[in-house]
Computed example of a mutant assay.
Amino acid sequence: MSLDGISRLGGQSTDELVPSRYVQQVGEIEVTVICDGVLPITASTLATNADPAELAGWLDDMFLPPDVLDWPLNVVVVRTGGQTILVDAGLGVEFPDFPRAGQTVRRLEAAGIDPASVTDVVLTHLHMDHVGGLLTDGLKARLRPDLRIHLAAAEAEFWAAPDFSQTAMPQPVPDVLRSVATRFLDEYHGRLRPFETEYEVAPGVLISRTGGHTPGHSIVRVASGGEALTFAGDAVFAPGFDNPEWHNGFEHDPEEAARVRVRLLRELAATGEALVATHLPFPSVCRVATAGDVFRCVPSVWDY
């Protein structure tokens, strides 16, 4: 590279140097994965029922630190026909303890997606790293007045009186989760379009309630032209491939969450469809392979 080229690179923004968005075509439907950033998480939260030595071994095998690690945070934009569908909204910018997350709005704009063009929002659940972006000043005023927000009715009902008895989250996270979910429901109640079990947001875009992680946790399936992709939200975490029975501290029903995870991974391994999840390393597009009684995440080759 010439010195002139290096000089030009040095003048570009960080967002141009570091990949933050990735487009995956699914038949006639365009799926864009947006990196909202990373969150620090206590490593023990990844496997609250695991033997500490086994978790330490897994972290070491994955070249991850033993105490606190970066947790990726992804959202998805689905464009089909005349609809632009935002699936989850990231953390937002109101949490100074998490300065490396909350990038969704800026990176939507960098991807050429005007927030005013979003016709629908699908929420996998109401944890703050999935809805906080909708509460960010500078975004709310830009959203369409006829915006439709889809979530499971069971999710909205749960947060009216949430039960954290089976979770293992560090303080003060439970109170913050409750506060953010309450604020979201208060501010957006008039735009909510709750569903019971599943709902077709657009032709080939289906949201389905799984439960487990939260009572109304949902996944989004995109299918077109014989191709398919599933956005799994928080049904699958990185340890969940080779240790699907490990419980995540944020799971409100960890036993059911493990059953949901195994069932989903088995299905994806059988169909061969693509998987994207909130907390897998960006862009997280992969296929699922079976390895005995556990699974493997096989990253897709980037198409650029």
Rank of each mutant, 00 (worst) to 15 (best):
F282V: 11
R183M: 14
V38I: 12
Q166T: 11
F158M: 08
P215W: 01
S179G: 15
V18T: 12
G11C: 09
Y199R: 10
V205C: 07
W159S: 04
T14Y: 15
F231D: 00
I6S: 14
R107T: 00
P174G: 09
A270C: 05
S179V: 15
E245M: 15
L185D: 03
L151Q: 01
Q166S: 15
T230H: 01
D70F: 11
S208H: 02
G249S: 10
A101K: 00
R100E: 15
W58S: 14
T290Y: 11
V31R: 00
W71P: 01
E200Q: 10
V288Q: 06
P115S: 08
A238V: 08
L55Y: 04
Q12P: 04
V78N: 01
V301T: 13
P283Y: 05
V288H: 00
V93H: 13
D67M: 13
L275P: 01
V294A: 07
F158Q: 03
H217P: 06
V105S: 01
F98I: 14
R296N: 07
L192M: 10
G133R: 00
W58Y: 05
R209V: 12
A228G: 14
V31I: 09
E251G: 10
V222A: 03
M62Y: 10
D163I: 06
Q171F: 14
P194G: 05
V201A: 00
I113A: 02
T210A: 14
T45C: 14
T197S: 15
A111I: 05
D163P: 05
G212I: 01
L206I: 06
S117E: 06
R8I: 04
T42I: 15
E273M: 08
E109P: 06
D163L: 04
G57D: 12
L69M: 14
G211K: 08
